[in-house]
Design a protein around this nucleic acid. Sequence first.
RNA 1: GCCCUCGUAGUUAAACGGAUAUAACUGGAGACUUCUAAUCUCCCAUUCUAGGUUCGAUUCCUGGCGAGGGCACCA
Length: 570
Amino acid sequence: MIENTLRNCIAEALSALSIEPDSIELEFSDGVAHGDYSTNVALMHAKKVGKKSHELALEIARELLKNKPTEVESVEVAGPGFINFFLSRSFFSSSLQTIRREGGDFGKGETRKGEKILIEYTNPNPFKEFHIGHLMSNAIGESLSRLLEFSGAEVRRANYQGDVGLHIAKAVWGMMQDAGNFPAESDSLKTKIAFLGNAYTFGSTAYEESDGAKDAILRINKELYEKNNEQVNNLYDAGRRWSLLKFEELYTILGTTFDFYFFESETEKLGRALVREYLEKGIFVESDGAVIFEAEKYDSKLHTRVFITREGVPTYEAKDLPLSKLKFDAYPFDTSIIVTAVEQKEYVKVVLKALEQISPELAEKTLHISHGMLMLPSGKMSSRKGSVVTGESLLREAINESRAKMTKEYEEGVAEMIATDVGVAAIKYSILRQAIGKNVIYDQEKSLSFEGDSGPYLQYSAVRARSVLEKAKREGIVAREVGPEEAYALERLLYRFSSVVEKAEAEHAPHYVTTFLTEIAGEFNSFYAEHMIADASDPFSPYKVLLTEAFLEVMQNGLYILGIRIPEKM
RNA sequence: GCCCUCGUAGUUAAACGGAUAUAACUGGAGACUUCUAAUCUCCCAUUCUAGGUUCGAUUCCUGGCGAGGGCACCA
């Protein structure tokens, strides 16, 4: 790796000047004028050795030039004392060949080679809408999964769904009130889901507004737990089945497949038993009829939470405890990652603290990654108030929008596929373009952007590259490694992809990949506008074709990491 | 009240403690008989506030102001 080579050179140069080469910072230069790599070692050590930073930089540069590796064209000192490395022409052209040779493997690393990782994300609740928060969790979780795979990990995807709880009792009660509209088995899934949605909204409104309804819903909740009312059971089974089918439909559109599904109906009784068991051992205590865990006794920044309610019903907290073991039994992981919205952050800390008392070895292997929330301009979404933007409606709008944008004529089936891929890309890009911890303010127009920095922009540049390569093929132009004196700006970027992926994985930051792809796509589009790539009369055409091939390869791998498909045409 | 996040052009975002803070959208001016104009080129504009640490602060620390999330029987 070129980076290691440069680091070693710098370390040697520093030693030659009797400077302790502790940590060497090496970064990509921020512009062509500053070369390809920069180091600030002179700035860091100047004071220690009592020299001016610029002078020290010159001395280090002189040392560096004594043993200049072949990949380095020149070394310059600039600004207050930065040492800039300019890589050689041949380094760039050979890295294009490397990219072409490695193809779909280019960018893969081994930092997590062989590590078994189970990652939980999306977590929608049957009977409730799959809202844009789930869309966000899914886009982020899927991308993190792919980054981990690119780093050599053996990843399994898990989805944990709440198929028990008060929200279901509300929906079931709502279904009973609206029995006249109960869908027939032959009705479309869309009709069934609409029916369910209405039932839930109706039920939760009634729960808050009517004591009678509230009592009825609580009774249903108990019946659901005890499974002793056939009518309730039948409604439950139908609603659960419809919801899960609907979710699968969305996963197909989004491009996710899960290896494991866990349900709260599995963890509920286990959780209650576990809490009861550790209540006797003093981990949990009874308070006001409920069973609680006083996390602040272990860490003053944590707080008390209820694990079993006064009614004897296990809460989400209690259910989460056995989930870790269920996961481990399903897939003996080295690391278990849970991806949720940031609103769960403090909650997860408490649950993990409780888990630490019960199964320290599992708690130790668990990592929580939280992402920001999708906010409406009016504030937080609430499904109880009905102010949710559903994942499906957003997807549908994005797909319609991309359909409307299409200027070329395609067959019906093809057009639908392109519109879907482009619409999904627009949404995923708007989520994965920024640091995952920050909230996304959901602005319909911006989320559905098809111009400028956007998912479709990335797709378009890749499709364009393919189109050019097809033309090159028709004209019999074959990629070749002989280019003009001066390297194109684009080839000075492509080789960086491996480092970008490594850093994105290490910091759980898919947006580094998004930013990088946006940068190279822009560079390719400029290159495209300025140069005729496939031109049989141009002696450099084979090289430009090679560059285009390498660009496409990087785009394909990068978009794969983001979970964005590239349409055949657009 | 306590505990976490966050505050960057008009807007939405980017920037391991580094060089002239980077893009897109909006607004203004241009470019398609040439490989896809969902594109390209040019212009205008930004670090909440008061201190501190540092050769150097958007970045780290402290206070203030503002926004979001969490804090017992919801998930």
